[in-house]
């Protein structure tokens, strides 16, 4: 997906001027759309560092002067500081990334490379779970975790990721592993390597792009997740950033929009950072696999 691959427009009998005008028109349209799409985000960013009285008096994205007081107010706006929420979210997200990459790659390796009885049957069932909306398992899972005394801990959010419950990522990895030349594992097998060693020393090192895609999307999905923390975390001390924001809306947020915007901006920062650093990987992930975000 490089720039060089673009098709040039078909230009009929030398109507260069018309083609130029068309191209200019398209650029204007795209720039306009970009502006409309980004304006809300820029406005939020600007509002978070405007003096409080300016937020709703002005539509501008240029603050008259920079004022970071909203960040200070927001950071300790609830009875527990946002630092705690960030820490909680970070711990949960990192643990989920590790679990997902590990358990999904193990399963994917078995499906892509090993021969065993009932492989097609289990593979079909695995794909079948892709179709199942999580609402069906939601209530029994909640009852299960409740009876294990896991509610109000991070376990219900993290443990499922160590059980390869994101079938989509298994599928993604199976597709990638299948593309690795089989001669490599066969050569390793000749040398007496066990499947476990082949998985670790051959397959994983050659699969960094797909592992990275899975890791980044798992991080973003977990970081953004609101529903699971909402039902499993009740104590404010164990809140994630998304729950923290919600609590903030319900309490002081109605009066102090500057502080609420400031915290919202901070919550978006990790996702934007991933976007900036791994843009190509993310966009290719969507283009080639149809990931829905």
């Amino acid at each position: 997906m490089t720039d060089g691959m673009h098709r040039r427009p078909i230009v009929g009998s030398g109507t260069v001027v018309r083609a130029r005008a068309l191209s200019l028109g398209i650029h204007l349209l795209l720039c306009g759309t970009s502006l409309v799409m980004l304006y809300p985000l820029l406005w939020m960013l600007a509002s978070s560092c405007k003096p409080e009285n300016e937020i709703f008096s002005s539509m501008s994205i240029w603050p008259s002067r920079l004022d970071f007081d909203a960040y200070v107010r927001g950071w300790s706006g609830l009875k527990i500081g946002f630092g705690r929420f960030f820490w909680n979210s970070l711990v949960i997200s990192v643990l989920c990334v590790i679990g997902n990459v590990l358990s999904c790659s193990l399963a994917a390796y078995a499906f892509a490379r090993l021969r065993f009885k009932g492989k097609n049957f289990w593979f079909a069932l695995m794909l079948g779970t892709l179709m199942l909306p999580y609402h069906v398992t939601l209530i029994p899972q909640y009852i299960l975790f409740l009876s294990l005394d896991w509610v109000d801990t991070i376990l219900p959010l993290v443990v499922p990721k160590y059980m390869a419950t994101d079938a989509f990522f298994i599928f993604l990895m199976v597709q990638f592993f299948r593309g690795i030349p089989r001669e490599l594992d066969e050569a390793a097998m000749m040398d007496g390597c066990s499947p476990w060693r082949i998985y670790r020393k051959v397959i994983l090192p050659l699969s960094l792009p797909v592992l990275a895609t899975a890791a980044i999307f798992t991080f973003i999905f977990t970081w953004d997740d609101f529903f699971a923390p909402l039902i499993y975390l009740n104590d404010i001390g164990s809140y994630t950033v998304q729950l923290g924001l919600r609590a903030f809306v319900d309490s002081s947020g109605k009066s102090d929009w500057g502080a609420l915007f400031a915290m919202s901006v901070l919550v978006l920062v990790p996702v934007v950072a991933f976007f900036l650093f791994f843009q190509r990987l993310l966009i290719e992930g969507v283009a080639t696999t149809g990931l829905k975000r």
């Binding site: 985000l41 939020m44 915007f261």
Partner: peptide, 17 residues
Amino acid sequence: IFYLPSLLGASVAIAVL
């Protein structure tokens, strides 16, 4: 630019905005 909102949209922060 067009992809960014897709990536951010699920956050509570955007709903707040």
